[in-house]
């Protein structure tokens, strides 16, 4: 058990550090901390213009959504970059569980997503004048962490497709764009068609954003635990799906000798 935890924990951290082979602190700050803040401002001002919902709806919802940026792309890169850098074969040759290796890689990305969402929420609340009760902070942290974890597993599911399809970043770009629409972060759920709401219910962010908004509005943690539980269930669902797809596609890519085909 200790070895498995080491594989999941240390392996994930090492893989995360390897990202800084190509990224730099300035890219990190620009892309993951400042960029999402502008995204939040865009939708907050759009919301103010049309008066569809108040600032809390847009600020809190979009802050939760910012976790998706790092987690979905990160989860995708956890698999896709191995192929891109020619190291996928080495990973798959390992005698250890590949499922544990890849699931472990999601954890640092989820931590990253939590950091981004928390910093975006803090800065946006200060700049746009949103007051959040101090008692809501632990619950908000829990909602953001759950969202980040669910997004990471969602990203890993997309990354698993990278074992089968060549241009997995096309899929992740489209997925991130769809999250803007389907999660109801920018349009109140009752203004969206039932079909979009149904898809949103099985996507990450939707339930966590709902929980976070209610917490920021003063709801006690107990009231929003079911929503956070739903978000966690969505995340677990994607983790299981990712593990299944990784197993199937790995076997398939060995059989078809298409492991490193780009």
């Amino acid at each position: 058990m200790g070895a498995l935890l080491r594989l999941v924990g240390v392996g994930g951290v090492i893989a995360y550090r390897a990202l800084f082979n190509w990224t730099t602190p300035s890219i990190f700050v620009g892309t993951l901390l400042v960029g999402p803040l502008f995204q939040l401002f865009f939708f907050a001002y759009l919301g103010r213009e049309f008066g569809v919902a108040d600032d809390r709806f847009y600020i809190v919802g979009n802050a939760v959504l910012t976790a998706a940026l790092a987690c979905v792309y990160g989860g995708t890169m956890a698999v896709a970059n191995e192929r891109r850098f020619g190291t996928l074969g080495h990973v798959l040759l390992s005698p250890r569980s590949r499922t544990a290796i890849f699931l472990g890689r999601v954890l640092p990305y989820a931590g990253n997503g939590l950091l981004i969402a928390a910093s975006t929420l803090t800065v946006a609340a200060l700049l746009l004048g949103l007051r959040i009760p101090a008692t809501a902070l632990p619950g908000l942290l829990l909602a953001l962490a759950t969202a980040a974890l669910a997004c990471g597993f969602f990203g890993l599911t997309l990354g698993a497709l990278g074992l089968r399809f060549r241009d997995v970043f096309l899929i992740s770009n489209v997925a991130v764009a769809l999250l803007l629409l389907f999660t109801g972060v920018n349009v109140p759920a009752d203004s969206l068609p039932a079909g979009i709401r149904a898809v949103g219910a099985v996507l990450p962010i939707t339930h966590a954003a709902d929980a976070a908004r209610r917490l920021a509005g003063g709801a006690p943690l107990g009231d929003v635990l079911p929503a956070i539980g739903l978000e966690l269930a969505v995340g677990v669902g994607y983790a299981v799906l990712a593990a299944g797809l990784l197993t199937v596609f790995e076997a398939e890519s060995r059989r078809r000798a298409s492991l490193d085909t780009l």
Binding site: L46, G47, E49, F50, G51, V52, D167, F169, L170, N173, V174, A177, L178, L180, L181, N186, V187, P188, S191, L192
Partner: peptide, 28 residues
Amino acid sequence: SPFEIAIALFVPVVQATLAVYLFRAGGE
């Protein structure tokens, strides 16, 4: 480039859909 074309076509359509629902919800 399938990537360029897909992104150029699909992402703006998602943004447009979002905008349409937002304008409708805002009574515009």
